[in-house]
């Protein structure tokens, strides 16, 4: 881990600015964050708060304008585009709101896609894809094509695709955003199981207040700034109040923070 800490993810004074038309947009301003290994973290906040931008920086999809992102001891700024792609393939599993499975491939083939980037032979790729589908509870759906699967099942296939390479880190951008309540709960359950049973570190962007019952930490962003202390507590309370839910701890659910 970086600097001897036990953080799998170490975000140091990161800012992300870009120009949209003629205006400079400050998507993130001087954000620092540490996420320990085997921790399930939610990034929450209103639209445009910078949570997806932070998720992209953590997963090596985007690069910060300033600051440094270190994941599993690897400073991402030292990698060029192709090295970053290879790094993502080995260390990061990605889950999106819209599953974007390839419609002409079966569930097993979709899950096996990331394994094309490995040296595994065809039989081993197939075996691992089937194992990943069993983990997400789709052992009966190996040969089904996406159009024959429900939204929840398609998201499970996407999760299987994210874990098939056994990555250190899983990042999920609104994974329940396109699902009904029952399927959303099931997906959150599955993500928590991945953390509990397989020790995966999971960073999830969500608007869904139900997620607070599943995560170890919730971090709140607003206007590109990571909220801390009372501000963070107020944001969490507001979120829960808006959702009509019972108060939940804003950070670690085990009460350690």
């Amino acid at each position: 881990m970086a600097d001897g800490s036990n953080a799998l993810i170490d975000v140091r004074n990161v800012s992300r600015h870009y120009v949209r038309n003629v205006d400079e947009v400050h998507a993130l301003d001087d954000v620092s964050l540490e996420v320990p290994a085997a921790c399930f973290v939610a990034l929450m906040g209103p639209s445009g708060s910078g949570k997806s931008t932070l998720l992209n920086l953590i997963s090596g999809i985007d690069r910060p304008s300033e600051g440094e992102v270190i994941v599993a001891g690897q400073p991402l700024s030292t990698l060029d585009e192709d090295e970053l792609a290879t790094w993502r393939a080995r260390h990061v599993g990605l889950i999106f709101q819209f599953f974007n499975l390839i419609p002409v491939l079966s569930a097993r083939e979709n899950v096996a896609l990331p394994l094309l980037l490995t040296d595994l032979d065809k039989a081993e790729r197939r075996r691992r894809a089937e194992t990943a589908l069993r983990v997400v509870g789709l052992e009966e759906r190996f040969d089904h094509f996406p159009r024959t699967l429900s939204g929840g099942e398609q998201q499970r296939v996407a999760i299987a695709r994210a874990i098939v390479t056994d990555p250190d880190l899983i990042v999920a951008d609104e994974p329940t955003g396109d699902l009904d309540a029952r399927n959303a709960e099931a997906i959150l359950d599955l993500l928590r199981a991945l953390k509990n049973e397989f020790g995966k570190t999971i960073v999830m962007v969500t608007h869904d207040s139900r997620a607070l019952r599943y995560v170890d930490e919730a971090h709140h962003l607003d206007k590109g700034v990571l909220l801390t202390g009372e501000e963070a507590e107020r944001a969490a309370a507001a979120l829960l109040a808006a959702a009509g839910a019972h108060p939940m701890p804003p950070a670690r659910s085990d009460g350690s923070s």
Partner: peptide, 14 residues
């Protein structure tokens, strides 16, 4: 969409 996801999960430009 698919192409973007493929790139995100690690498929290089080439």
């Amino acid at each position: 969409g698919e192409i973007a996801v493929l790139k995100a999960i690690g498929f290089a430009r080439r």
